[in-house]
Design a protein around this nucleic acid. Structure first.
Lengths: 135, 135
DNA sequence: TTCTTAAAAGAGAATAATTCTCATTTAAGA
DNA sequence: TCTTAAATGAGAATTATTCTCTTTTAAGAA
């Protein structure tokens, strides 16, 4: 169980009720949009301005507390998992799942140790795996 | 040199001047946004309604003529290259480059032939490689 | 505990990308 | 050439996101 207050404190961010709840939301919802976060907080805790949530999410991304994830929809989603991982995308719906595979990471790391891409320095590699979820 | 008229015809799409130019634009601009396509056409050929361009791009994606590509910005980009490939993303600016690497594709294919992801059928794998371009 | 102040939050207007509606035009086959 | 379903255009509507400016508050100092 993560101590939310401490997480903010370590990043030198003022601990506010709004920030605590946004962080909680991103940790508890899978790949939420800003709108998802707003609903989560309004339903359970208190009213919050949309601009505030957008601002807080942006701040968290800058501080490296959460990550933006890429989708080909026009809505930005966020991810509370920081350790490098990949994503499974449903070709049918909006479902996105995390995919963690350290063996694969090792293979990729090994591969790019030898194969250099000219004029490009790799910081991070993530796979988008598209397909179909079977129920 | 691709025959644009024929490309549309094969997909059973009415051949219109607007569609021809949108297709030309996506082939000639690297990872354009809808706005990029509109500017391209207006500058060189004729005025075109924004809604028309959005509609045409959507139609092309549905017919598999082009692909949407994912970015963590809030703008959708398109890609005229259909053969499976990966993308290099600049962490600094908006630069996106195609990255084609058949050796890597083979390794991934081999890897996932053995390693199955439970309840998921892979259709397509693409890498997002983030990092820094060196001039 | 109270005071101070920079930072954060709130309200709502502004912006920008995208979608929608409906009237008009046009490609393509009869 | 005629017919018609499909495509385009114009602009309004929608929606996600950002911005502005005022008010509130967290946190450290006194």
């Amino acid at each position: 169980m993560i101590n939310l207050k401490n997480t903010l404190f370590e990043k030198k961010l003022k601990v506010t009720p709004q920030r605590l709840k946004v962080l909680e939301a991103v940790y508890n919802i899978s790949h939420p949009t800003a709108e998802d976060v707003i609903k989560y907080i309004r339903k359970r805790y208190f009213d919050i301005a949309t601009g505030t949530v957008y601002k807080i999410l942006e701040t968290f991304v800058e501080k490296g507390l959460i990550k933006k994830i890429t989708t080909d929809k026009d809505i930005i989603r966020y991810d509370g998992i920081l350790k490098p991982h990949h994503h499974l995308y449903s070709l049918e719906g909006n479902l996105i799942k995390d995919y963690i595979d350290e063996e694969l990471d090792k293979i990729l790391q090994e591969y790019f140790k030898h194969k250099k891409i000219s004029d490009f320095e790799i910081t991070e590699i993530s796979l988008q795996i598209k397909g179909k979820f079977n129920k």
